[in-house]
Design a protein around this nucleic acid. Structure first.
Lengths: 352, 352
DNA sequence: TGTTAGCACTCGTTCTCCCCGAGTGCTAAT
DNA sequence: ATTAGCACTCGGGGAGAACGAGTGCTAACA
């Protein structure tokens, strides 16, 4: 057991006090003093004793003071310890459980809609910001491809994936390419590329299709260029945000100068890269500076993953202040990612 | 000429002073005093004279004071007058013109992309928030409809409109409906509904299609229910935002308590209704409380429209503080909406 | 009669000073 | 080992004072 290792360094009482202090600070957002801890239930010793203990905890780096004679605040090391060893799962009230299940109860046949709803639930129940990465587009497989002509020189190319996701783009069609050519090409593509992952489209196109096309259609070069262009997946990630403004209500972000960089980061692409750099198995927590990304030094990031049909992976993330209600968020994010996986696979089940 | 009517009430000097004061306040965001006006170029009279004039303008309701001995600030009536009678068009620098044209210079074949880029340009060059309403989905005409089967019980219904917009939704297909039925149905729909505006789909379905279906396919009732369900356009508006966070940099929104309601309104649906309530011809400005919507009493809204092929109308809007750089925004929004129309119709031209 | 210099007055802002209270560390008694 | 007591620290809040940007008014002037 890990606790034995811990006991060598921290006494039971110190563990208890650290836990109390973090719990207190998480709700009050203000430095916690010995007196207020002493008043808490289950505390049998005096403020003076607590002060001694807290001084030790501070010396070990688990706590900090904002100024010489202030109460204590958890350090990042303190949060890390709390999260690793002291996190006790929290029970949600029946009311809340009911509400969550209810939100999922509508008929949500579309994967996107399901993810969007999940993000909303997560942000509303945590009061922080939820970010979800959809299943990577590039991992999806091509189910059907289609060209719809809009007018003499333009058409819409439509790509449907196995998950039911639809990509479309408008393309210019040179005059030299005739309608029956297009039909022929689309048929060839559907034939050869069925269930090919999107990230392979380019290479397959060059390897297999180019030869077939050369034999079957006129103006082969132009068509190849066109296809190469339009079968490039430009934005390989689907991103869903919810509750971006929840951060504004947090006491640590009352200052506008803190809000602007934060919101800028939340809207930017770097946060996505940060999310994708999280390990892809199970639940992970990054506290403050553990995030490599500038601008969220005062935030914590909790992520987990969900899967569709045991394959396509997506990420569920909650971002909030370092002083986060970790137990609650962990419970919620875990629950929601399981519900999401469950729901998605329920759809998937129809496949077999 | 309107100016004659004005002259009966406001002297030339008063007009001049009002204009100076608004221009000054727009950049400084602070009450303007007589001394600072006197220092401006072209002002030949003394602070005392200016004070007298300003007092008159205040009496007439064009100016306000924040407190008894402060400088003056334009009232809503003052802004209104300024906007109606004193707005002098502003020239953009060659640099800026170049940048704008450059931003449009990439190949932007997709309507959506074009609108998105326009919003971005507008918000970046004004430093306010841009909101664009896409051409109303309901006005578009059906170009092609298609069903792609995903698995035994689900398929994706794809609707392509004449503008190249693609709508799609996942539908559950009852087992009783066979593949050849689906093909038959889709053929009938494409045949009967070609170039029918989307808002008519429902009624046409009931009037014309239901009879044909009854004769040609099994399980007619179920299919009708399915079609009725999936041919409903759920979200009839496409909305593009850009620069929502620009508001945070404005001095009037330094207070977090002001930011939260503002951002909430910007994210909400009411603002869309407000936008749609603007007259649909030419450029319009609503100042402060002229907006019926709560939460943007301190903002002004400038809108204009753009058109696609002389038909589908969309809205371009900029929202900023009442103390807005009106001349610049008017010039920019006008220019950008023209460029947008131009670009869209360039695509359209290929049609003929 | 319109303009302007001069002056008393107003009022928000900023700075200082002071006090309060929450909290600490240390010491000595239990 | 625990705790009561005490001196000390420091941020926050409130009361004044000084400041300055601005006004309105009056009287003099062209």
């Amino acid at each position: 057991m890990l606790t034995e290792v811990i006991h060598k360094m921290l006494t039971d009482r110190q563990l208890f006090l650290l836990q109390l202090l973090v719990n207190d600070y998480v709700v009050s957002a203000e430095p916690v003093g010995s007196r207020s801890i002493a008043k808490r239930e289950g505390v049998t010793f005096s403020p003076a004793t607590i002060r001694n203990e807290l001084a030790d905890l501070e010396e070990m780096g688990y706590l900090e003071k904002t100024h010489l004679s202030s109460g204590r605040v958890p350090s990042e090391k303190g949060y890390r310890f709390y999260v690793d060893h002291l996190l006790s799962p929290v029970m949600l009230s029946d009311d809340e459980l009911g509400n969550i299940r209810h939100a999922y109860h509508e008929r949500l046949s579309e994967t996107e809609e399901l993810i969007r709803v999940t993000a909303k639930i997560l942000s509303e129940f945590t009061n922080y910001t939820a970010i979800m990465l959809g299943p990577e587009l590039l991992e999806m497989k091509l189910k059907h491809i289609q060209m719809v002509k809009l007018n003499q020189s333009q058409g819409v190319l439509i790509i449907v994936t196995d998950t039911g996701h639809v990509e479309n783009r408008v393309v210019s069609i040179p005059k030299s390419i005739k309608a029956d050519d297009i039909e022929k090409i689309v048929n060839i593509l559907n034939d050869k590329l069925n269930m090919v992952p999107l990230y392979q489209l380019q290479s397959r196109l060059n390897a297999e299709i180019s030869g077939v096309l050369r034999e079957n259609v006129r103006d082969y070069k132009r068509i190849m260029a066109l296809l190469q262009d339009s079968l490039t997946i430009s934005d390989p990630e689907q991103i869903f945000y919810s509750g971006k403004n929840n951060m504004l209500a947090q006491p640590e972000f009352q200052d506008v100068d803190k809000i602007i960089p934060l919101l800028d980061v939340l809207e930017g692409k770097e946060i996505i890269r940060e999310l994708m750099s999280m390990p892809s198995d199970g639940l992970h927590i990054r506290i403050g500076r553990e995030n490599k990304l500038n601008g969220i030094e005062d935030c914590s990031l909790i992520t987990t993953t969900y899967s569709v049909g045991g394959e396509h992976l997506g990420t569920v993330a909650v971002i909030g202040p370092k002083r986060m209600a970790y137990p609650r968020v962990v419970t919620l994010i875990d629950m929601v990612s399981k519900l999401l996986t469950e729901n998605l696979n329920q759809q998937e089940r129809h496949d077999r």
